[in-house]
Every structure is written in C-alpha cells, then in structure tokens.
Simulated assay, not measured.
Amino acid sequence: MASQWIRALACAVIVLCVLGGWGLAADDATTAPETASPIGEAAAQSSGFAAAAPRGRWDPAAGSGEIVLDNGSYYSVFQGEADVEAWYDTTGRDVTGTVLEGEAGRSEGEPFRLSSAIPADQPPGRYAGDDLTVRVQEPRIRTVTLYNSVGTELEDPSELQREESLLVVVDWNYAAAEDLQVDLIDHDGNLSIEREVLSTDPTEAQSDRLPDGVDADTLAREEQGLGSTNASTASWLFDLGAVDDGTYTLRIEGVDDLTTDEAAETFRFTVGTDATPAASPTPTASPTPTASPTETASPTATPTTSPTATPTASPTETTSPTTPAGSPGPTERPTTSSPAPTTASPSGTEPPTQPTTTEEPGFGVTAAIAALVVVLLQALRVRRR
C-alpha cells in the first residue's frame, strides 16, 4: 500500500513539473517586450520624406523651404531660386552640397551643386549623381490673357475705355516654386495702385472666362498661387472706372526671387483718352457711278460714326472702389512663414520605447494548483485502503 502511495505521489510530481514548465513558457512568450525594428525612427522619416518629394516641404507663398529628390523622377527646380533651406533624398539623408552632373543638351557635363540658391545662369537640363536626379528649368510666365467687360479677348490693351473692367488670367510654369503678384503702376505719381483698383465684381461674360473653380473673391488678391489660393492659375479683375485718366503699367512677377526675364510680364496701356470722338465726323458724299451729269441732288449717304462703347455691368462707383476686407497693401507681402523643417536627423533617432509588462498568474500557476489537488486526493485514497 505504501508503494502505491509513493507511485501516485511521483506521478503527481511529474505532472506538476511538466504543466508548470509549460505555463512558465506561455507566460514568458506573452509578457516579453517586442523587439525594436532595426530601422527604428529612420523608417518613419523615410516614408515622410518620400511622400514630401519634391515640394511638400516648401512654401510657394514665401518661396522658401526644403526640396526632396529621388533617383529617377527628375523633379523640376528653376534658375534663380533661392532660400533653399536643405536638400534631402527620399530616405531623409541630407544631401546638401552634393554635386550632380549634366546629362544631355545644354547641361551635358556641367556641374550642379545642391546649395541654398540655384544660379540664374545654371544651364537648363537634366542632372544626376549619387542616386539623385533633378531638372533645371527656365522660369517663365506661359500665357497672359486679357478680357474686356463683354468677355472679348484683347490682343492689344494699349488703349482702354475708362468705364471698362479688365480681367487678367495668367498661367506660369513655376507655380510649385513661387506664387505670383501683380502691380498696377500710375505713371503720373509713380505709385502702385492695384489695391484701390482690384475688384470682385466680374461681368457675366467675364465670369465665363474664369478657369474652373476660381472664386470671384480671389480676383482682388494681389498675390495668388498654390500658397495663397491653392490654384496653379492666377486671375485678377481691374475696375478701370476707379482710376484717373492716364498711362499705366501692369506688371506680373514671382513673389520672391523669380522676377526677371521671362519670369515676369509687363503691359503698358492708357485709360480714359476717349478714343471715340464725341462729335460725329463730317460726312463726305461718295459719287454715284450711275448718276447723270445733271443730277445735283445732295448725297444721301448716312454718315458713319464710330459706335460708342457701352460698358456692360461696369462698376459705377468711382469714389470708393471695391476692395475686399483684409486685402494687403500695394507693397505688402503675405506674412505666412515657411513651415519649420523637421529637425530630426535620420541618424539621431530616439531609443524605442519598451512596452510595460505586468506580472499576472499564468497557466503554470493554475496547473500547479490542479496537480496539488490530484496528489492530495490520491493520498487520501491510499490511506483509506
């Protein structure tokens, strides 16, 4: 009987050891901290920089920020750009100072250093090196289209009627780099008066000429573009009834560095010259080929007079031109600042945060208790025998 009791006790001990070890292993697998990724913080930065390429870290309203390049897209930058805070690749590596080499055309064999400014005379073309690619372009205004009050496109705006309104629609190739600004200069006083002349009240015909999605309220914004209006075209409306007679210059250019050569456009025109005479010209009779020599009848030709231009829905107030609230002054610039660049270096990563573990009874403790109960029951059975 004693030997049976001993065998029962031995079996219980074996079961206790096996189940207890299993429970401890299960507890260890559950509470062990996760192994940190070998990439760590750099992985998150890589994703961010790749998504930001090439101008996601750039402010076109100020013409400054960071540029991200990859190894095959040949993202565009422009001659004369400055205020480049840093150049990165898509992994977050700072590549400022890297020298690329021109591949073809005017840029072939030419060096291009990734620095804080792009030389205005940097040969345009494609450059590559160190797993980086970029394309240098000449900044230019592609098109400027002018429409009068009845929506007619003006090929020569040199002379406009005083009661006209003038719609200006502009497209430029460096919208990602810089917004555009407009100046209307009064030659009599050499003053920039666009703030007093810009309007938000286009005629119906002019509204039909606006690009899709353009709000009339933006027509009086002196600065327009991706940073100011989130649009890659610019549209301005000038109420010429709000200006005095005289000669004016309309100038369109970038808000920061891109203000020369084809990056800018200038028009000169005269307002209020009354090109159409108030009096009708004296009619002159045209000889009638079939008239007999004895006919002395006065000519019946109706004198032709130049039609007087009738403004369509032109603003009539001349003393208080419509100016949208909060519109900046003639020489003001938007106060939006460049977004602060991410200062974390890809190599300066913080140690991963270790998960907090808590000790709780696992499967091993439960198994041990169950085994102990089995041993006690078996011992009682043996004693009864």
Rank of each mutant, 00 (worst) to 15 (best):
E81N: 09
V77C: 12
Y88A: 09
E66N: 13
T91D: 14
S115C: 06
L69C: 12
T90Q: 12
S76A: 08
G72M: 11
T98L: 08
T90Y: 09
E66A: 14
W87C: 05
E101R: 08
G65P: 10
G97H: 05
D83A: 13
G80D: 05
F112M: 14
V77I: 15
V99E: 06
S73K: 03
F112I: 07
W87T: 00
G72Q: 13
S115T: 07
V95Y: 02
G109N: 00
T91A: 14
D83G: 06
F112S: 08
E101G: 04
F78E: 01
D89G: 08
F112N: 03
D89H: 05
G97Y: 06
D70P: 10
S76C: 02
W87R: 00
D70K: 01
G102F: 08
T91K: 11
L100D: 01
Q79A: 09
E110L: 02
S73A: 14
E108T: 02
E85Y: 12
R106I: 06
Y88D: 04
T96Q: 05
V95A: 03
P111V: 12
G80Q: 03
Y75C: 01
D70L: 08
R106C: 01
N71W: 09
Y74L: 05
V84E: 05
S116M: 12
G72S: 14
T96E: 06
E103W: 07
E101C: 04
T90W: 09
W87H: 01
T96A: 11
S107I: 09
P111Y: 13
E103T: 15
F112D: 04
D89V: 09
A86E: 00
G109V: 01
D94T: 03
E85V: 14
R93M: 13
W87I: 03
D83C: 07
R106Q: 11
T96P: 12
S107C: 12
G65H: 04
T98V: 15
G109Y: 01
G109I: 01
E101V: 14
I118K: 06
E101M: 11
V84G: 10
N71S: 15
Q79V: 08
G97V: 05
E66V: 15
T90I: 15
E103M: 14
L69M: 10
V84L: 15
G80A: 11
V95D: 01
W87D: 00
G92A: 04
T98P: 09
S107P: 12
V84N: 10
P111I: 12
S64H: 04
